[in-house]
Every structure is written in structure tokens, then in C-alpha cells.
Nucleic acid binder design. Structure first.
Length: 134
DNA sequence: ATTCTTACA
DNA sequence: TGTAAGTA
């Protein structure tokens, strides 16, 4: 999950963001007021934007040019955020369950090796192989 | 030189 | 949104 960290690393002062997005400082600060982006502040109170913030601002600009108002864009981005987090959660759960599965398989295999009888999981797995007459 | 806030057009 | 003023 290193790439994600990079995209969320505060890097750009507003001057760079202005060049990257071709938005004015006024606009960028205004969007921040409305919580569409949340740049962190340095000790000197200067804003630092992340790569994701820049992407976000570009999307805001695009939607604005297509005629959407700020509140609509805000709702849109919130939904997009929810969806994104849900997908991420599912991925995490999947990874956890697969790790758990491997752990159980290993345990069962070692157990079966000791007492020679079919393990519980072998019984479970047989369901996925129709050629095994049951 | 840059950025920040506030306030008014 | 743009811009001017006074700061940090």
C-alpha cells in the first residue's frame, strides 16, 4: 500500500497547484472552505496539497465546466469516497480470509499427516470436485 | 518571493 | 470570483 501513501503525502504549495490545475488561488481556497479538498498546513500555516488533492481539483474543475454547482460536486465526491472505501474494505477482508484459509489448510494438513485420517478441510474441499462420488 | 486572511466590489 | 491591503 505504498503507492497510496505517496498519493496522500502532502507535497505541493498552492503555487504549484495553481500551475498544475490552472485554477486561481481564490478558487482553490474557496473549494477548501467547502471541504472539497483538505490540504494540511505547515507550521507557517501554508497549505500543502497531495497528489490526490490535485486530481480532485482537476475533477472539480472538469465538473464545474460541465455545469455542476459546488454542492452537487461535493455530493458526487462524497459518494465516490464511500464507494472507494467500501471497495478497499472488501479487499482487506478478502486478504484476511485468504490468509486465514491458508493458515487453516496448513494446520489441517499437518494434523492429517499425524493421525492418517482425512481432515475436516479435505472433506470440505471434496465438495468442489464432483468426480468424487459421495 | 510566496502565501495567508479579511473584506469589499 | 477578482482584487486590494496588511501579514507571516
Amino acid at each position: 500500500m505504498r503507492i497510496e501513501d505517496r498519493r496522500n503525502t502532502p507535497l505541493f504549495p498552492i503555487g504549484i497547484v495553481i500551475q498544475l490545475t490552472e485554477l486561481t488561488a481564490r478558487q482553490i481556497r474557496y473549494y477548501e472552505e467547502h471541504q472539497l479538498v483538505k490540504p494540511v498546513r505547515t507550521k507557517g500555516n501554508q497549505r500543502l496539497f497531495t497528489f490526490n488533492d490535485v486530481d480532485r481539483l482537476l475533477e472539480i474543475k472538469d465538473l464545474l465546466e460541465k455545469g455542476f454547482n459546488l454542492s452537487a460536486i461535493k455530493h458526487y465526491l462524497e459518494e465516490q469516497e464511500k464507494t472507494k472505501e467500501t471497495l478497499k474494505e472488501r479487499t482487506v477482508k478478502k486478504e484476511l480470509s485468504q490468509r486465514e484459509l491458508r493458515k487453516r489448510l496448513k494446520s489441517e494438513i499437518m494434523q492429517a499427516g499425524k493421525n492418517g485420517k482425512a481432515s475436516l478441510i479435505q472433506g470440505e474441499l471434496s465438495r468442489f470436485y464432483p468426480q468424487h462420488k459421495r
